[in-house]
């Protein structure tokens, strides 16, 4: 019997297999999973923003790429995972609206989310084995610890697995 966990915005959930981790409607946000197939543990974070610098009180560590990545890794280790076996997959980071001819930093937050998440994984020595990022479409993602695959649903394009 697989338990299903919904990972809300800026949340972070670490579980032991068998489990399914779901996050709904990622726009510019990132769905990050880090997992260890030997220890059979996986963690998912719903990252909203690239970095926490300038934020005084961080209520949710899952909100920022620079705090979410190390926390998921720590939580996985606490549950018995080994850092050198960990692998990561990411999806999301779309730009929902484009306004031609307008410099709008806040609309391209998706791109910066992808960049920061990728670089945090690299710094931590975790290999990013699959990703589906960018574009202008929202994604709903579902990670199964049975197959270790990340299923991505996009409006009008159906379902893909990475």
């Amino acid at each position: 019997m697989e338990n299903t966990y919904h990972v809300g915005m800026a949340d972070l959930v670490v579980v032991s297999a068998p489990a399914v981790l779901i996050t709904l409607g990622l726009g510019s946000c990132i769905g990050l999973v880090i997992f260890d197939t030997t220890a059979k543990i996986a963690g998912m974070a719903h990252i909203m923003l690239p970095d926490s610098r300038g934020t005084k009180i961080i209520e949710k560590v899952g909100k920022f790429a620079d705090t979410a990545v190390p926390t998921v890794i720590d939580e996985l280790i606490k549950k018995g995972a080994s850092k050198n076996r960990m692998k990561a997959k990411i999806a999301g980071g779309a730009q929902m609206f484009a306004l031609p001819g307008v410099a709008t930093d806040f609309l391209s937050v998706g791109v910066r989310n992808v960049k920061e998440t990728t670089s945090m994984l690299q710094k931590s020595g975790i290999s990013l084995v699959a990703s589906d990022t960018g574009g202008n479409k929202g994604r709903t993602v579902e990670f199964s610890t049975t197959t270790w695959m990340l299923a991505i649903k996009t409006l009008g394009k159906g379902k893909t697995e990475i």
């Binding site: 409607g25 726009g27 909203m48 949710k60 609206f97 484009a98 306004l99 806040f106 929202g138 409006l155």
Partner: peptide, 27 residues
Amino acid sequence: ISVPGVARDMLASILDVVASIFGQMGD
């Protein structure tokens, strides 16, 4: 006012834009 942008998508993905604007300031 800027030129308009349009999107058809899941409600949560659209509201991500809102969340990320305010998310930089607080909760």
